[in-house]
Design a protein around this nucleic acid. Sequence first.
RNA 1: CGGAGCGUAGCUCAGCUUGGUCAGAGCACUUGGUUUGGGACCAAGAAGUCGCAGGUUCGAAUCCUGUCGCUCCGACCA
Length: 574
Amino acid sequence: MRWSKTLIPTLRESPAEAEITSHKLMLRAGLIRKLSGGLYTFLPLGLRVLRKVENIIREEMNRAGALEILMPALQPSDIWQQSGRYRTMQDVFYKLQDRAKREFILGPTHEEVLTTLISAEIDSYKQLPLNFYQIQTKFRDEIRPRFGLMRAREFIMKDAYSFDATDEESQVSYQKMYDAYVKIFHRCGVKAVPVEADTGVMGGKFSHEFVIPADSGECEIAYCDACSYAANVERATSRLNPSDHEQEQPQAPLTPEKFPTPEVKTIDDLAKPPYNIKPEDQIKTLVYIVEDKPIILLLRGSDQLNEAKLAGVTGTLLFRPATDEEITKLMDAHAGSLGAVGLTGIPVYADATLQPAQSMTTGANEDGFHVRNIDVKRDINVEKWADIRVVKPGEPCPVCGAPLKIRRAIEAGHVFKLGTKYSDALDAFFLDHDGRRKPSIMGCYGIGVTRTVQAIIEQCNDDAGITWPLNVAPYSVCITPLNTKPDSEVMSMAEDIYNKLLAADIDVIIDDRNERPGVKFKDSELVGFPIRIGIGDKSLAKGVVELKPRTAEMITIKPEDVVDKVLELVGART
RNA sequence: CGGAGCGUAGCUCAGCUUGGUCAGAGCACUUGGUUUGGGACCAAGAAGUCGCAGGUUCGAAUCCUGUCGCUCCGACCA
């Protein structure tokens, strides 16, 4: 490609709309442009990167035995009614109607579509296992699109769906995808780590996320340096022994005692003088509305509620904190004085760490009063004990006991073991050896392709610009003639090398613009081509050209050796 | 959806508090010339109904109201 014949609108300054490095660089390097919030056009260079990532994914999916298909983005809403997700996922739908007022949804994902297909086409265990995938645009009405391609309303996803006759075979399918993902991210030149994850709205048995560590990431992972444990904080647990909190508790049982606490509204207030009650010795009482019914949630005052775990415990995503009005009506007290002691009529779920807790302090359910000496098991009518807290850094790893660390990361891929949730709901049954009708065991596997592109940049950049890994760079080589007069020795040498690299099937671009050297150097570094070949009168006078890897020192080389050297560097790719 | 901030030329921004030589700068762009190894210089030029709509006023980029768009934080800690 000739620079002068394509569009690479580089920017010297970062547009005000971009906040994080990768977003700024995508705009400055002329890869994308925004149409509207969460909607982006891929310019020629950005599209080349996107296609390279897609092709790596495609190759590894095919190698793993998955079959590429293409499903409609526009989907009738009734299949979502059937699966039950019309209600649970309604917030993310873009809905629309046809002229006959039938309702459609722009697909946020494709379990329903594919399961419907499988229901009609697959009748026998002899046809299994199967795994289908597609690379396609998804539509989600995100609460808040942000950071460019990181969280967009419209984005490209690779989604795969496996169907197996038995649980064991399903596990094999899952592992194949897991292994393929490891290869995909490795080939993309990005460091990604698999972590245990929450299954969220997908439902299902268990899952792993592939995350790319980055401070700008939107999820948090807990991980252990001493062993391989790593999990999304939504799922992460710790070996925190409940009795850790209780070691200083007196042996003799104490009776509950109400005491006045005017002005106390928060856990922190009660932790200060004159009360001096440590947060971990307080009970935090939360009121939630789950499927229109109230429940009480109890945690240590020092702990945070983990809504993902709550979703697992309640089996629904349709819950929210109660409003102040609802709390007052239900509890006869305001938030800040709530407590569950002696409470009946509203189910109480308590975090497991409270099970052995004695001598705790909690609201008296009467404004201006708290009660102390509470033994949770003795004094509170707990309907369910469960892990509903967020782990904190420094807590013992659940596997090996070393202190856990927490850091931010970008979720780039997710593999789910789904079980039979969708095959049951959408009638994807087959006849097994024994003549019995059984639901297929499903798995689903997603990679955010556009998000991965940006995540690569988030990880691969320096002060000058992007430092593309070779396998996903828009062009592997940029030839930079410093004199573009058509009949000059420099330009004819540049053209000669350009043609030879083209003939050798190298992705090469020649910067044939009549720009000053500084402009060309800055642009090639901003865009981030892995190899730059600089040709100027000065170097040519010495009988050499310059070969500058983007992230290594420049070398000079005889013109006739350039092609071999490039092949050597490019051939090193995986 | 709640909170905060921002909308002035393609991009980055000044001007707004105190209404009236207030349609501005730099970069980018066009033309001519000089330059040519790290974002050149000189000269001339093109480019904005100051997001939009109302209102106040003799007069509004500037004040008021509404609205749209964009960005950030939050949407759990009672």
